[in-house]
């Protein structure tokens, strides 16, 4: 109450999270907080449990055979396990995958899918949403003349932006990006990074990345996972230049392994 600077609001809080697949541990000991309107980076070599972490945030464990987790994950202070309608929880969280997924529907329907599932039927409302989301994802100019062609036949870079437009059409509070630049050319990557910087004012972004420099460019704070264990979390810049609690973090960000 008497803090000089108001603490930023916590969006996601994770306590003692551990994830298993068929009883085998995939990630453990995660304790961190993600603040509202920040870009939160997660770095670490392949197989360190980053994707599994994202899948817990929107409770995709429930759709994944053998996946279980312990500990608490709360979004806006509410335990994700407490949700009776998981689909409603997921609809508030946008996800972008490593490999772009343009659904085999028209470009228009790709973006209109989520609003339609939410019950929006009016053509003018849908038109407006589709255009707004495609513009925000920096794709509108390239596809505005062929909105009825298949989204799944776009180029990789375009499909990735379509995926982002689709995630934005959910009007998410939380946007999860999982190594989005893996299958995308550098120019598109830069375009998407610019989009993300703009989106920060509207939502909280969790950016899992295999590129340490990408985290450095975008993330306010960053967590480091290593082979199934949470190592540490801190201001992104601190991981590169400031004090680190674990020497492996510095070794990793400086490219000495991974």
């Amino acid at each position: 109450m008497v803090d000089a600077a108001p603490q930023p609001k916590v969006k996601v809080s994770v306590k003692d999270l551990a994830i298993q697949y068929g009883g085998k541990a995939a990630l453990s000991g995660v304790n961190l907080e993600i603040r509202e309107h920040e870009i939160f980076g997660i770095i670490g070599p392949a197989g360190s449990g980053k994707t599994s972490f994202l899948r817990v945030l929107n409770r995709m464990d429930e759709m994944t055979t053998g996946m279980t987790f312990t500990g608490t994950v709360a979004i806006d202070g509410r335990d994700v396990r407490a949700w009776r309608n998981l689909y409603a929880l997921r609809s508030r969280i946008g996800v972008v995958f490593p490999l772009p997924v343009g659904l085999p529907l028209s470009i228009y329907d790709n973006v209109a899918l989520s609003p339609r599932l939410r019950g929006i039927r009016s053509a003018s409302d849908l038109d407006e949403i589709v255009e707004r989301c495609l513009r925000r994802a920096a794709l509108w100019d390239e596809v505005k003349d062929r909105l009825q062609s298949l989204g799944s036949l776009l180029s990789g870079g375009q499909q990735q932006r379509l995926t982002i437009a689709r995630a934005l059409s959910q009007e998410p509070e939380l946007l999860l990006l999982d190594e989005f630049s893996i299958a995308v050319d550098p120019v598109t990557t830069m375009k998407i990074e610019d989009v993300l910087k703009e989106l920060r004012s509207e939502m909280t972004i969790v950016l899992v990345t295999n590129l340490v420099q990408q985290a450095r460019r975008l993330a306010d704070r960053t967590a480091f996972f290593l082979s199934g264990a949470f190592v540490e979390v801190g201001k992104t810049e601190d991981l590169f230049t400031g004090p680190v609690t674990d020497p492996r973090t510095r070794e990793y960000v400086e490219g000495r392994f991974g």
Binding site: D76, G77, R78
Partner: peptide, 22 residues
């Protein structure tokens, strides 16, 4: 602990789609 925002409960209802899926 911050109180649970009211809109959480509002959107966390088992709606028609939920029951159709079931």
């Amino acid at each position: 602990m911050a109180p649970t925002p009211p809109d959480d409960h509002a959107s966390d209802r088992r709606n028609l789609d939920w029951y159709v899926d079931r």
